[in-house]
Computed example of a mutant assay.
Amino acid sequence: MKQNKYDDLGFFGKYSEMPRSVGGLNAAGEWPVLRTMLPALRDKRVLDLGCGFGWHCKYAREQQARSVVGVDLSEKMLAYARENNNDSAIEYRRLAIEDINFAAGEFDVVISSLALHYVEHFEIVCSKIHHCLVSGGTFVLSVEHPVFTALAAQDWYYGSEGERLHWPVDDYQKEGLRQARFLDNDVVKYHRTIATYVNALIDSGFSVMKLSEPQPTQETLDKYPEMKDETRRPIFLLIAAVKN
């Protein structure tokens, strides 16, 4: 399923008001860790899958990447990227992640930030990424953590006074589609276990180099105190892998 909620005017408006949409990478709680998992980007050919507003594309060029291709299905996201994170060495393409078909060895680094949990067949995308990377190329991705995606409700268990008691986890082993609510809209996501993410990469020919389940830094918590409960359970899963 290839959904494109971000071109819905109401949804896009709400998404544009989120801290990470306004503040870019510095407002993304996982960014301090994700950044350390990226290889040196100088003179590299970079592909960003689900590039959104183009923040990672811009960062790659700031790190002197030779060229960057940003792929996203949303025309509204790409229009923002072209206007605000434009660069002659960045090419933005409107394309579903599932439909990529790049040449063998076309890229040195592939990045995908919080997009692949919207993709039904992760293993197929892994194979396509493996194909378009050079030998020794790096694939770094972030997804919503399986603890977060296991239940479609994606919400806390509350006490009688409305206090957040705990984060419920159920149906963890039951992989597949979840009809979740995000920004007051129904959004299709796909739940996978950590093992499925890792084994899909291994089966596609990658060596997994590092995993991370980051929590917000103290600096981020000081700036965004509403994120204080993000230290109580993982919300993101980050993986760095290298093509064998």
Score class of each variant (00 low, 15 high):
residue 1 M to L: 07
residue 3 Q to R: 06
residue 15 Y to V: 00
residue 19 P to N: 14
residue 23 G to Y: 03
residue 24 G to F: 06
residue 26 N to Q: 12
residue 28 A to T: 14
residue 29 G to M: 11
residue 32 P to H: 11
residue 32 P to A: 12
residue 39 P to R: 15
residue 40 A to W: 09
residue 41 L to P: 03
residue 41 L to S: 03
residue 42 R to M: 04
residue 45 R to S: 13
residue 45 R to I: 02
residue 51 C to A: 12
residue 52 G to V: 00
residue 52 G to T: 01
residue 59 Y to R: 14
residue 63 Q to F: 03
residue 63 Q to M: 11
residue 66 R to M: 05
residue 67 S to N: 13
residue 68 V to F: 15
residue 74 S to N: 14
residue 75 E to D: 14
residue 76 K to Y: 04
residue 77 M to E: 00
residue 78 L to V: 01
residue 80 Y to W: 07
residue 82 R to K: 15
residue 88 S to E: 15
residue 89 A to Q: 15
residue 92 Y to D: 02
residue 96 A to L: 03
residue 100 I to V: 12
residue 105 G to W: 06
residue 105 G to E: 07
residue 106 E to G: 05
residue 112 S to K: 05
residue 117 H to A: 05
residue 122 F to M: 09
residue 123 E to A: 13
residue 128 K to R: 15
residue 129 I to D: 04
residue 131 H to F: 15
residue 133 L to S: 11
residue 136 G to W: 06
residue 137 G to W: 06
residue 140 V to N: 11
residue 143 V to D: 00
residue 144 E to S: 09
residue 145 H to Y: 09
residue 149 T to P: 10
residue 151 L to G: 06
residue 153 A to Q: 13
residue 155 D to H: 04
residue 162 G to N: 04
residue 163 E to T: 04
residue 163 E to M: 07
residue 163 E to C: 07
residue 165 L to K: 15
residue 168 P to H: 13
residue 171 D to C: 08
residue 176 G to R: 14
residue 176 G to F: 11
residue 186 D to L: 05
residue 187 V to N: 01
residue 187 V to Y: 02
residue 188 V to Y: 04
residue 188 V to K: 07
residue 190 Y to F: 15
residue 192 R to C: 10
residue 193 T to P: 04
residue 195 A to V: 07
residue 199 N to F: 08
residue 207 S to K: 11
residue 220 T to R: 15
residue 227 M to I: 14
residue 228 K to F: 13
residue 229 D to W: 13
residue 232 R to V: 02
residue 234 P to E: 08
residue 234 P to M: 09
residue 235 I to M: 10
residue 238 L to R: 01
residue 238 L to C: 11
residue 240 A to V: 03
